[in-house]
Design a protein around this nucleic acid. Sequence first.
DNA 1: AATGAATGAGCCTTCATTCAT
DNA 2: AATGAATGAAGGCTCATTCAT
Lengths: 196, 196, 196, 196
Amino acid sequence: MPKIGMEEPRRRALIDATIHEVGARGGMDVTVGQIARRAGMSTALAHHYFGNKERILLAAMRHILSTFGALVREELARVETPMQRLNAILDASMDRRHFEPETVAAWLAFYVQAQQSPEARRLLRVYALRLHSNLLHELKQLTDPARAARMAQALSALIDGFYIRHALQDQAPDRDDIIDILRDYTCRQLTETGQP
Amino acid sequence: MPKIGMEEPRRRALIDATIHEVGARGGMDVTVGQIARRAGMSTALAHHYFGNKERILLAAMRHILSTFGALVREELARVETPMQRLNAILDASMDRRHFEPETVAAWLAFYVQAQQSPEARRLLRVYALRLHSNLLHELKQLTDPARAARMAQALSALIDGFYIRHALQDQAPDRDDIIDILRDYTCRQLTETGQP
Amino acid sequence: MPKIGMEEPRRRALIDATIHEVGARGGMDVTVGQIARRAGMSTALAHHYFGNKERILLAAMRHILSTFGALVREELARVETPMQRLNAILDASMDRRHFEPETVAAWLAFYVQAQQSPEARRLLRVYALRLHSNLLHELKQLTDPARAARMAQALSALIDGFYIRHALQDQAPDRDDIIDILRDYTCRQLTETGQP
Amino acid sequence: MPKIGMEEPRRRALIDATIHEVGARGGMDVTVGQIARRAGMSTALAHHYFGNKERILLAAMRHILSTFGALVREELARVETPMQRLNAILDASMDRRHFEPETVAAWLAFYVQAQQSPEARRLLRVYALRLHSNLLHELKQLTDPARAARMAQALSALIDGFYIRHALQDQAPDRDDIIDILRDYTCRQLTETGQP
DNA sequence: AATGAATGAGCCTTCATTCAT
DNA sequence: AATGAATGAAGGCTCATTCAT
């Protein structure tokens, strides 16, 4: 009985399965078979919908990044002042949902994948750039352009750094401590005390 | 051509080849064949010396981490005051040699590998712990324990964060800018303008 | 050419090919490639249906043993008296079909395999036990329990002994002579001329 | 320090190691490396002494068979009458030394090997022939030629059959029971009670 | 006499991908 | 829409054998 309009749910199921599987295995060395099985279909169908493995992986990556982007946008929509908006970005970046082990592992795996796949690289650049420009936009209203730029870079690095560390080390600070550190950093940078 | 005492040079050649190959391909999905070919020997010989692929990979990882550790120790040996030593750690962490594209790629790949291989995980933890305790040791002499702890975590994250970003994004700040940011961060943290 | 329901014929083809190949080569050192080629398919498909080499070999062994068992049962169904049934077992054991060189070689190879594979050992034990209990059941109705037991053991050993010798030596007696010897043995044992 | 006159002990060590290794692993799939290691030398040396693997295996087989032959000869030297000599052959064939698990396994493995290697086949034929003619020689003095021939075949088969069964099945009768069965068989055959 | 070094060939197994139904 | 069938290609690993010392 040929079902109709199955394309969307099937694609979703495959993307979800990919993220779970990549996360569970902790790397990109997942097989189409594993993904398809978890998604409850045959490998042939997976290929039917995505053409090849790389495209499945890219779709999953795109999904993770767009989820992240949506979350930031959502948080930003709620607040007004630059300082609030800055904090909103940081909060969103540290949202609990990103810290689910599977997501973290998938994220890290995609980082590596990006070195081999130009398209993955492009996607990651888009994410990095957007985070950077989001931060920069708010920071520019809070301090001079040079410092704003430097802070945006530092905050981005902190976010990625904590993220990656969280993926591997039990001794990494937990989410609340991280937010404290980020707030403390911005706070001190914005407090005008010229370095002697 | 001497036919004895080949073990050491062969192992070295394989380790170097592994790092280059992992770096060049940007991931752990290198074959023993590729490594062996680059090291100028047969795959059988590679297996003869290391037993299996994982052990080759781990040896390469161990080499990278110990190189990193040696560099830090070397820099630390040159200076005296806590502040100098702190800067020495940061400088060493940002040493140009770590930023050769192949090394960066290998480093990143090892991070992923660590999620699958307990031994890789252990190695990475050792590195992270050592960096952290090195930083902490100096920071404790410069500020109160709570802030020292927080700073050590932040600096570790910044280092890893910049490192990972450097691996992927052209727009990542260059080494000198990174050092500026790290210095600026520590400087501001250590300048007593306490938040109430 | 129908593309569904291929599993059964494929498995059969692989089992047959295994027996032929093991028989032709005279040992278990057959490769999956050889088996698959003879069965007219790729090695990948062989693995698809059986999982791994050992399972292919075990399936072949199981097939040989169950063929043997079926033959005995078939012969037994035809006759009535204990003596007839005893002879039926001996006849079936010496059936021409078991003496095809390939089957003999495969049989022998399985005996060796049994020393390494617990499952193979189990299968062979089941065969030996069944033969023994079949013999014993009839013999008990023809003589006292002690002698029945001893005869069952002797006949089993004779069957296996002739079988193995047939596999290797041209000078081994042929099937009819073997049957004569078996009959003569039972006959004399059952004729009451007790040793004092 | 080049040792001299090492050839003999080295060869012996390799032969012993082969038998142990084949017996321990229960098959001919032993590697030259395993044999050499157990014999306490390098694989290169093993090749130096025997040329190739097959020759090592054959030497081991030859050793087992000649040990068997020597034992029979030894036993035969001790007794006089045909009946005593017949029993001596049977006793020697069932000697405890043959039933050490390693020897049994090696024996069985050689049987299979014989299907692939003409030389192994030849060796085994020699053994079988010698056993047969030994038996025949004595039996001819105890009964008519036709029965003697038949008995020789039956006894050979019984010996091999019990041997092979012993290798695999716990339920096989032990050595003493086997000897009882063999004696009982000959006794009844030689007792003149014409079959009706 | 003895061995570490070295390799070519081969085997089992996996996997992405295609095809016919 | 969906899948079982099927495979080519490749990868990790083993091993008998050779060579130079």
